[in-house]
Design a protein around this nucleic acid. Sequence first.
RNA 1: GCUCCGAUAGUGUAGCGGCCAAUCAUUUCGGCCUUUCGAGCCGAAGACUCGGGUUCAAAUCCCGAUCGGAGCACCA
Length: 515
Amino acid sequence: MDEVSKTGYREWESELATIAPELLEELGEKREPEKGLPPLAGAEGGVTMRFAPNPNGPPTLGSARGIIVNSEYVRRYNGRFILRFDDTDPKTKPPLPDAYTWYLEDCRWLGAEPDEVIIASDRLEIYYDHARELIEKGGGYVCSCSQSEFKEYRDKGEPCPHREESTGENLDRWREMLGGAVEAGRAVLRVKTDMGHRNPAIRDWVAFRIVDTPHPRPEIGDRYRVWPLLDFESAVEDHLLKITHIIRGKDLIDSENRQRYIYRYFNWEYPRTLHWGRVKIHEFGRLSTSEIGAAIRRGRYTGWDDPRLPTIRSLRRRGIQREALRRFFIGLGVNETDIELSMENIYGENRKIVDRTARRYFFTPNPVRVRIKDAPPTVAKPLLHPPETRRGHRTIPVKNEVMISREDAEKLKNNELLRLKDLYNIRITKINKVIEAEYTKGEIDIIREKKCRIIHWAPPDGIRVEVLTVKGRESGIGEPGIAESIGRVVQFERYGFVRIDSMKDGIVTAYFAHR
RNA sequence: GCUCCGAUAGUGUAGCGGCCAAUCAUUUCGGCCUUUCGAGCCGAAGACUCGGGUUCAAAUCCCGAUCGGAGCACCA
């Protein structure tokens, strides 16, 4: 062995060839790179996963990651996907009744139809039963310390007086809590963990508290006033639903340590867990659902599908395809690093998908009129989809005036020769409020030769179009055919991809997707 | 402060002791093609946070530093 160590890799290799050729073969094997998500450890016995949001707003880009990655694993291993609403806080993060439906809609739209939908607020009795059982096992106690009192005990790592009470006493006090005799804030049910745990976050955490605020779901309302906290509810549900793998934000890592105490008391097996870091998107920053909700109420946004918001419904309205989101998030994988990324990545995926089918149209934002001398009346026939000529063309009748975008108009020079795309060549004769030009004979070859510009245009009697973008609203004139593409994602040539949303009073509204 | 994590091109991501003078995508820049500043094709640019150690061999293992993040709630 000493002899081998002194020599280099090459020698080492040839030496190996003489003593153990079968090992050398192993050395030469190429490792296959994994496409998409890495395999899930422990998936052999079947996979059940859940996505567990608090429905206090519609799903956002962040939720999409959870929905897509969880459901993708389930799909790959032929398992079960559960959508579970963790809606057990009627007070500080009150659920929004509409959001339950929104989650279901958006899951479906993303191609993640849940096999089962669970609503925690329907299952309080189950949690109460488990709480009682926990107390009976000596794993829980009713604590009437105030928050600050308990904080002192926790910081010192010492038990509070209630910790030592008998099981019978605790059961009585638990029944009192449930019975409504105790004021909100005067008692909680704690899980007995370890007051000396090195991580204070783990020490005797709260499992249930009393909340007087009614639950926003009308069918629940004020039926209950003792509510479990996430760690208790989630711990019990994950077991009951036979969840095998959990993927969640790394902010919940300590949660797992807390929940493991419950699993220990009940002798359950904890699911495998994976965590991901925080995602920050340049274009949107960090917006919490509750902040967005408040901004909508203030009128800062038009609603949850405002194109400036990172909600799934907004992206959908803008024409972002589910497949773009799926590819994107599957490519991101599951990683504990916090990431900061740009929407460009998603737009790039979307562009590839949408370009294959999007019809092309002319749209001139902030239009400026161009009067063309000696222009013969004609009909322009640009292709509907240039890569596929057999899809036919649009027809745009033109007299002797067109509109061009202000951006193009500002770049014009006197006497400039240019081409109106798919129409004819013109020469600029006068730049004014109305631009004057003259019709010039000659085809595209002249333009190419002289490297002149080709710009798009719209007929003055075209259709009025309002485009809603992330930055604001832009209005202009588009070719009439746009009205035939309502609901479709199209490309406004030299402008970008938009989804034609609707038409009202002869005005088309489009949502801007990306360039 | 205490308890945990993490660090690969501008942005993401693969790799997890010899196939790595490091993958793929996006980005940026050239060129071709095209009656779009779109798409496509070709080419180029660009990274293992730093310092020690272990080893014949380190992006990969260990220790430390730096930077970043999460938790320490009767929120999820």
